[in-house]
Design a protein around this nucleic acid. Structure first.
Length: 428
RNA sequence: GGAGAGAUGGCAGAGUGGUCGAAUGCGCCGGAUUCGAAAUCCGGUUUAGUGCUUGCACUAACGGGGGUUCGAAUCCCCCUCUCUCCGCCA
């Protein structure tokens, strides 16, 4: 949510910055609502002040045993006008609030202009794609040849966009998760958290999934939602709370399954594990002081990159352009891992700074300090990034570490998590 | 699932229709006292919003929503959550 004050003070500038992400702001409507709000609010408050004043006088008169009927008649006369003004004000403020909830965040000044994916800016490439003597297979063929990856059975159990993994492949998936969590907690200073996978609507509103993107979520019959990312429960830890300044920055990491309806992506990535209704992800979340958030974004992106580097997977870092930016983000770096089977880079992590956008929706604040003395509560900045998407990391390992004989070499850093095994071969 | 109790400021906790945004205690901040500290004493200490003469005024908020009333933390209705006991259970 944007600061309403910013819209009041400099609507034109807000509209201009939103244009960077291809969003047109209905400034006429906002100006109209604001003008009416101002007038009605002043009127309402005048009525309320008068009513409070008269009511107080009635109380005092009664206390002294005097007759208050004249005062009561006067305040009764206010009734209808007051009620009308209050109702109108409530309606306008509801309209304004609803409108405000659907306006995306302002892109940071460093965000490249552009409409979509093709305008994203490559920041750097790390690692060199391996050269295969024969055309590289994709992860579906590799996994199915090994007899460890099974889509038809998953379809039978549920439906498409689910997967079944068996044996050492299932274990490799778990090994990746453990390795990521251990690296972030032991080397990057994150606290591991275990969180609910079902959340209420308030939490979804807090991080920005609601009200605009309900169709992308799985909703339960009792009104709860399956989380589409650990970002939701983890970031909402800070909702409606004031964090002591000494606890900042707060760095949290969680491993959760993620559930996405993938509505609107029919026919896209239908093959393999790239786009699933259910996948695991290790997610990093940071709560920081506003002045630190862009340094924190670079740092957090580096933490995600460290996983790829340790796995020795080639990747590139892409700065999203305005048009490709998520609803709540002010700036985002995507990490794209090299997939030989597809001969392309595919997104495996997304690291974003939300500035105060989520914090304002959540009322997530920290107590400032001035010369060591406690000051006023102010909104924190929130960030998050995948570190990494586990399913896609598995895909990347399969494709990058495939051998001509159909086996998979296990990346060195994962071997301790695989009982020391060096490779994965088809079971007997 | 059944029965009961409750939800008030950073925390504890009073307030059951009228100058109550809210006693008191703790905590926190400032000051006094002290060589310094403890103790003690004095003062301060919620948030959001609006207006304009930018310092003042006003409005709103006592779990959430609705209602009664001239006036609601206080009365009524609905919802949510928490606690205790019983039952069930990984």
């Amino acid at each position: 949510m944007l600061d309403i004050q910013l819209l009041r003070k400099d609507l034109a500038a807000v509209a201009l910055r939103l244009a960077n992400r291809g969003v047109t702001l209905d400034t006429t409507r906002i100006e109209g609502l604001e003008a009416e709000r101002k007038e009605i609010q002043v009127r309402t408050q005048d009525f309320q002040a008068r009513r409070n004043q008269l009511s107080k006088q009635i109380g005092m008169a009664r206390g002294k045993g005097e007759d208050a009927s004249a005062l009561m008649a006067e305040v009764t006369g206010l009734g209808d006008d007051l009620k009308a003004a209050e109702d109108r004000l409530a309606a306008i403020q509801e309209d304004l609030a609803a409108l405000l909830m659907t306006i995306p965040n302002l892109p940071h000044e460093s965000v490249p202009a552009g409409k979509g994916e093709e305008d994203n800016q490559e920041v750097r490439r790390v690692g060199t794609p391996r050269v295969f003597p024969l055309p590289a297979l994709d992860h579906v063929e590799i996994g199915e040849n090994l007899g460890l990856l099974d889509f038809p059975t998953a379809v039978k159990i549920t439906t498409s966009r689910f997967v079944l993994m068996r044996g050492s492949l299932a274990r490799l998936h778990r090994a990746l998760t453990q390795f990521m969590l251990d690296t972030h907690t032991q080397e990057h200073g994150y606290e591991e958290v275990y969180v609910p996978y079902l959340v209420n609507a308030d939490s979804m509103r807090g991080t920005g999934q609601l009200p605009k993107f309900e169709e992308e979520l799985f909703k339960l019959t009792n009104g709860m939602y399956l989380i589409p990312t650990a970002e939701v429960p983890v970031t909402n830890i800070a909702r409606d709370s004031i964090i002591p300044a000494k606890n900042l920055p707060m760095k949290l990491v969680a491993h959760t399954p993620c559930f996405r309806s993938e509505a609107g992506s029919y026919g896209k990535d239908t093959r393999g594990m790239i786009r699933q209704h259910q996948f695991d992800k290790v997610e990093m979340v940071q709560f920081v002081r506003p002045e630190d958030s862009y340094t924190a974004l670079e740092e957090l992106t580096g933490h995600a990159e460290a996983i790829l580097q340790k796995l020795d997977l080639p990747y590139r870092v892409v700065a999203l352009c305005g048009g490709d930016l998520g609803f709540s983000a002010a700036k985002t770096y995507d990490l794209e891992v090299w997939l030989p089977g597809q001969n392309t880079y595919r997104e495996i992590s997304s690291c974003s700074n939300f500035e105060a956008f989520q914090a304002r929706r959540m009322q997530a604040r920290y107590r400032t300090e001035k010369d060591g003395k406690p000051g006023k509560p102010e909104l924190i900045h929130t960030l998050n990034g995948s570190g990494l998407a586990v399913g896609r990391a598995l895909v990347a390992v399969l494709e990058n570490y495939q051998n001509a004989d159909g086996s998979i070499t296990i990346p060195e850093v994962l071997r301790p998590y695989m009982n020391g095994a060096v490779s994965i071969t088809a079971p007997d």
